[in-house]
């Protein structure tokens, strides 16, 4: 290295702090890896971290967001298709991508760091504990990873959002086990749950998983979902993207809502991609609901109003965009 050296630690504490606060966030984070004392100093700065997003997949990623700046740490694991990534695995190296969108300008820097002698779990712990972020989010791609509940609890911070993604292919035993570990570790505290291609089964229904405390539930292309399963949830907002036409089930759901189920529900959006020649029969959806139509037939979106036994009003918007998209939006207005 040709750079001139500088005896940084011989500076008084206040000057060291002043110098570090002059550096950019990326250098501050880099400095936190230099030693334990350096790490403590950076912690004392309370960096204004908005979100830390951890993506647990074959090559895990940790993204730290600070206002208009995003720093992504891509943990490059040994390429071995048979071996799954686990939290005790040691990355080969770390690809650091720095993105800055400040002042409507975009800049990008990519560099490669060593693994700093840290495992995947230690990288997560380090980056999550530099500063108390406003929000911690974790995505788990269950096919690629091997997890257990105690390690997850030990390593991860209190998460606000958890996303569990199953592969397109049929779920195997390991996928289900990993997902169960994630739920067991986090579902008590988590507020926002996102499930992708989730293979609901008799012993793995929404009730089994224990969705009781989540406020937001998003389901993308779930397998074997029954709209009835949504009835017992306490979620305030539910989003469902499905491949099946759910009009009959939704009709039952709304009937039960009118009778008083799902009292906490504020919003339900159900979306599906219609097949060719599909024409939605909104009459099936509205059958027996005694809904008041607030738009003329054929107008997009069609709007209906229903009222439940508690006197709460809700609006149902029915939208159909040819073969591209159809959705039903249910919004409770007090």
């Amino acid at each position: 290295m040709t750079e001139h050296k500088f005896p940084f630690l011989r500076l008084p504490d206040d000057l060291r702090s002043k110098v570090l606060q002059t550096t950019e966030y990326l250098e501050m984070i880099a400095y936190s890896f230099v030693s334990k004392k350096a790490y403590s100093m950076i912690q004392s700065f309370r960096l204004p971290i908005l979100t830390v997003r951890i993506t647990m997949k074959k090559q895990p990623e940790i993204e730290v967001k600070l206002s208009a700046i995003s720093i992504k740490f891509g943990l490059n694991m040994q390429e071995n298709d048979e071996k799954m990534t686990h939290l005790n695995g040691l990355p080969v190296n770390v690809r650091v991508t720095y993105l800055n969108f400040e002042n409507h300008e975009f800049s990008k820097k990519i560099s490669t760091w060593t693994n700093q002698g840290k495992t995947v779990g230690e990288w997560i712990q380090h980056l999550c504990s530099i500063s108390q972020a406003e929000c911690y989010v974790a995505d788990f791609l269950v096919r690629d990873i091997e997890l257990d509940t105690p390690t997850l609890r030990k390593i991860f911070p209190k998460l606000r959002t958890v996303s569990v993604k199953f592969p397109q292919a049929e779920a195997n035993e390991n996928d289900i086990t990993s997902a169960k570990h994630v739920f067991k570790a986090f579902l008590v505290d988590v507020k926002d749950v996102r499930l992708e291609q989730f293979p609901f089964q008799d012993n793995l229904s929404l009730q089994h998983i224990g969705m009781g405390n989540s406020k937001i539930l998003q389901l993308y292309d779930p397998r074997n979902i029954r709209i009835d399963d949504l009835l017992t949830l306490n979620a305030e907002s539910i989003f469902l993207k499905t491949s099946q036409v759910p009009l009959r089930d939704l009709n039952s759901f709304f009937k039960l809502w009118k009778k008083g189920s799902n009292p906490k529900l504020e919003k339900l959006n159900v979306m599906w991609e219609p097949t060719r020649n599909f024409i939605p029969k909104w009459k099936i959806l509205m059958k027996g609901l005694k809904a008041k139509k607030s738009r003329a037939e054929g107008e997009v979106p069609m709007k209906f109003r229903i009222k439940n036994v508690r006197g709460a009003l809700a609006e149902i918007r029915c939208v159909f965009f040819d073969i591209h998209l159809a959705y039903v939006q249910f919004t409770v207005s007090i």
Binding site: M1, Y31, T112, W113
Partner: peptide, 9 residues
């Protein structure tokens, strides 16, 4: 990188 910082400083 952290190693370079350690060396320079």
């Amino acid at each position: 990188s952290p190693e370079e910082i350690r060396e320079i400083w």
